[in-house]
Nucleic acid binder design. Structure first.
Lengths: 336, 336
DNA sequence: CCGCGCTACTACAACGTTGTAGAGACGGGA
DNA sequence: TCCCGTCTCTACAACGTTGTAGTAGCGCGG
């Protein structure tokens, strides 16, 4: 069907190795020979067989990106950033989604080996401290994105969650807000994004000389828009008094925004609102959402670099942990 | 490093072919032998080498999805649907994005061969009639998504654009609107989504006994939110009188919605607004957006099925064209 | 008791590529 | 003049898997 090195070699009257040498730009090939081979390649429309190359080299030039859900804009934008960074390093990206349950998350991890990938970027969701040894089973280079839930031997790239949440909360306090809802806590969780962001929120409140009112710390299980909407509905129904909201991601913030507007709460006049993630969409909501830019493209670039370093060789190094810089993006939802 | 069939065979005291037979559930293996082999596999943590399998079988069990941009929610949701459909058929999905320029679109197509994929789903953007022969160069099974711009020999899955646009426009007319803006035309284009949707718009207007006012047909080049916003700003600045908008996709509609609300135009009271695509987000805008559900998950499922059929064998068949059913989803932006 | 079909297995080749070893020609320095 | 290094190219093996052909043993019908 498709041409192989043998076919090209026969057509050009050389050995297959010479054809291979031409393709790989091996220097010691006579110009006339090179031209003859290139003509034959063009003539036969020869394309190297990737499977054979992978078998020989042990490399697929392909990494996996394991994320919960591409419908979630955060992960879609992350995937975009990762794909661009990977392309710059000569790698393709195979995306694997997992559903909310633990089992499918594990299945996605295990699938990496079977797929013949060179390494994976893994955005942890439901696996926890106790699953560290499962991570080691993956058996290939891996870089964790998001929180470092495991004390494992893997590289890790994330934002400064606590500092960012503190900055977000301080921003509202500076705007004169004093009863600020923290929307998105995960009760009992300490080392995940929710725990770290809550710590930043509390630190900012206390730094302002106020005390944290537990009634203002509102749990939201999954951080999707509908969950933010429901949580805000419950808050308003309960008659809680508040003048600011720190939502732990933009989806929650946008869901809450929709419910507040529906109920006649004006933003930012009655309530100032800030989110996390700087989704593309936050520029277009009405009011446009103030948010924390976590440096997503930077996270993607660094993570791909760490992973590729592991793949091409620098094994044995101690696991590295990279914290990227965040940026507070002020928009309409917090400025009177 | 990692165990191969040879290692397992040695450990179990059998030939490599017997190990292979165990792995592939070949029936004629004695139970005791099978158990011995399975024990060795477990012991050595053997995992089949995908590259070697691909080389032998000529199959990678992997398809490409070539789309413009994952940041665009339509394509992110499409990718999600495609990945689920592909998984059900035992295939992984390698996503390749291209930028707005023609060259990167061609590069993405050509990359498919090099990557060793079994086939590709390709969402056409800027290639046109004249590029049909470039498509044939891809040299592997391919299914086109979206418009059939080429008279090429490829399978093709899309929605009923004209009928859907007609239904959308008729919906506004039934609601008593008479000066309806068509937002998103591509002047001169006939066979793409923009041309087909414009035809449906015009058909509905005429079926209602009205005449099409060319001033109400507003071009929007790229169908992103910012472009919809800018187009609507221009429309309002021009002082055009209108009481309804058929936006040719949801992103345009949401961008236009934001501008109208900003300018004090109320929706749906002053202007009724309908979009295309049924993005997840349209449920949460304020007002929630009425839209056309193009049957995206159905499109993805059918496209994957067509592609897999080509991959596993049914060659030589004439190209198939599948039109999926749409559904008008009525929400707040059109109901007084 | 021969031959046939079935079970259970093995040896070998092939998929298409690239690394290694080496051969022949040619030129330059001793 | 001779040796050695460089240029140009080739033959062969190997990456890990699976299809094909074949072997040996066993039971069963004629």
């Amino acid at each position: 069907m498709t041409a192989t090195l043998h076919d090209v070699a026969r057509a050009a009257g050389v050995s297959i190795k010479t054809v291979s040498n031409v393709i790989n730009n091996y220097p010691h090939v006579r110009v006339t020979t090179r031209e003859r081979v290139e003509a034959a390649i063009h003539e036969l429309q020869y394309r190297p067989n990737q499977a054979a190359r992978s078998l020989r080299s042990g490399r697929a030039d392909m990494i996996g990106l394991i994320v919960p859900d591409l419908r979630n804009p955060y992960f879609a934008e992350l995937a975009d950033d990762v794909m661009r960074a990977a392309r710059a390093r000569g790698f393709s990206v195979l995306i694997e989604q997992f559903d909310a349950d633990r089992e499918s998350e594990l299945a996605a991890l295990r699938g990496a080996r079977r797929r013949g990938l060179d390494g994976v970027l893994y955005s942890v969701l439901s696996l926890g401290e106790d699953d560290a040894e499962l991570l080691d089973e993956v058996g290939m280079p891996m870089v964790l994105l998001g929180e470092r839930i495991f004390h494992s031997a893997h590289d890790h790239v994330t934002m400064r969650n606590t500092e960012a949440a503190q900055a977000a909360t301080a921003h509202l306090l500076r705007g004169g807000r004093s009863r600020i809802v923290a929307l998105g806590s995960h009760p009992g969780e300490v080392v995940g994004s929710a725990g770290l962001r809550l710590r930043g929120y509390e630190a900012a409140i206390e730094a302002a000389g106020l005390t944290v009112d537990p009634a203002l710390v509102v749990p939201v299980d999954r951080w999707h828009r509908i969950d933010g909407a429901e949580a805000m509905r419950a808050v308003l129904d309960a008659g809680l008094a508040f003048d600011g909201v720190v939502a732990f991601n933009d989806s929650i913030a946008l869901g809450a925004m929709r419910v507040m507007l529906e109920r006649g709460v004006t933003i930012p006049d009655d309530v100032a609102l800030i989110g996390f993630d700087d989704l593309d969409e936050t520029r277009y909501s009405l009011p446009a959402l103030t948010t924390i830019d976590p440096g997503r493209s930077e996270i993607a670039r660094v993570a791909v670099d760490l992973l590729v370093d592991r793949i091409v060789g620098d094994e044995g190094d101690a696991p590295r942990e990279i914290l990227t810089e965040f940026r507070l993006v002020e928009r309409e939802s917090t400025s009177r």
